[in-house]
């Protein structure tokens, strides 16, 4: 079995395990390459019909291309799309200018808390990967969050041989990470193999492209002429810069990602 097929099978197994354990499940779709690949795998696992809500946390600061892509494919793939905004925080003027840690926490983490509570969600599929960040590399496939959404990374449960912790206390929820073992290159090779649609933000406009996308305010493009999937893969084979170097929340201060994640960030 080739390497990509092996990864695909690992992910589909995890996706089906989680659904067998939690019928009150949802998926977070940021419209980026990872969660769109995850959505593709989920559609494969369930034979084209996604049997749970697909949630988009809208900070209001996303790229226009993201909104267009979301609306087009939500319709084409028949998704039960749930768009959620932390309106109260937005009205209170929270923005990247008032502080990035606070902004991410309010508009993403707290928005997520609200949507989980309102929809009685017990588990959430997320498209995070170990090779993105050293703190994410410590994750489990099934990872519990307490009622404050805190991640107790010092006391993670045993997980082995496709057996996971699956019983949560009241008000706890699980994060399910089916593509944890994929690398950035695997994602692009799979996008190519499966012909998965992607927003054009990832492709060079002639001089630059985005390698990782989130809010327009906190993402910087990289200099690149890669305007096709093949060229992106070639670029990644030769790059010497990390994937999330353009993402502000990864490095504003030491341990920023760890702080964000213990507070419930993805």
């Amino acid at each position: 079995m080739d390497y990509l097929t092996e990864l695909e099978n690992e992910s589909i197994y995890l996706i089906r395990e989680a659904y067998a354990q939690f019928r009150d499940i949802g998926m977070l779709w940021s419209i980026g390459k990872d969660s769109t690949t995850l959505l593709w795998l989920i559609r494969k696992a369930f034979y084209g019909r996604v049997p749970f809500p697909v949630i988009h946390l809208d900070t209001g600061y996303k790229f226009k291309e993201i909104y267009d892509f979301r609306d087009r494919y939500a319709k084409e793939w028949g998704l039960n799309l749930l768009v959620y905004r932390n309106e109260k925080a937005i009205q209170n003027g929270i923005s990247p200018k008032t502080g990035k840690l606070e902004c991410c926490t309010e508009l993403k983490t707290n928005a997520l808390k609200q949507v989980v509570a309102q929809n009685n969600i017990k588990a959430l599929y997320l498209g995070i990967r170990r090779d993105e960040h050293g703190v994410r590399a410590k994750e489990r496939f099934f990872s519990v969050r307490d009622s404050d959404f805190e991640w107790n990374y010092k006391e993670q449960s045993v997980e082995m041989w496709d057996q996971h912790k699956t019983n949560a206390e009241e008000n706890e929820h699980f994060r399910i990470h089916p593509i944890l073992s994929w690398t950035e290159r695997d994602i692009w090779n799979y996008i190519k193999r499966e012909n998965i649609p992607m927003t054009k933000l990832y492709f060079s406009n002639g001089s630059c492209r985005y390698r990782s996308i989130g809010c327009e305010t906190c993402c910087s493009p990289i200099a690149s002429t890669a305007d096709t999937i093949d060229k992106i893969i070639e670029e990644l084979e030769n790059t010497n810069v990390s994937e999330r170097s353009g993402r502000a929340q990864d490095k504003e201060a030491d341990y920023m990602m760890e702080k964000l994640r213990t507070l419930g960030y993805m």
Binding site: R130, D131, G134, A137, K138, Y153, Q156, S181, T183
Partner: peptide, 8 residues
Amino acid sequence: TIDTTQTF
């Protein structure tokens, strides 16, 4: 090292 980790 407290928890297991992976790199590629």
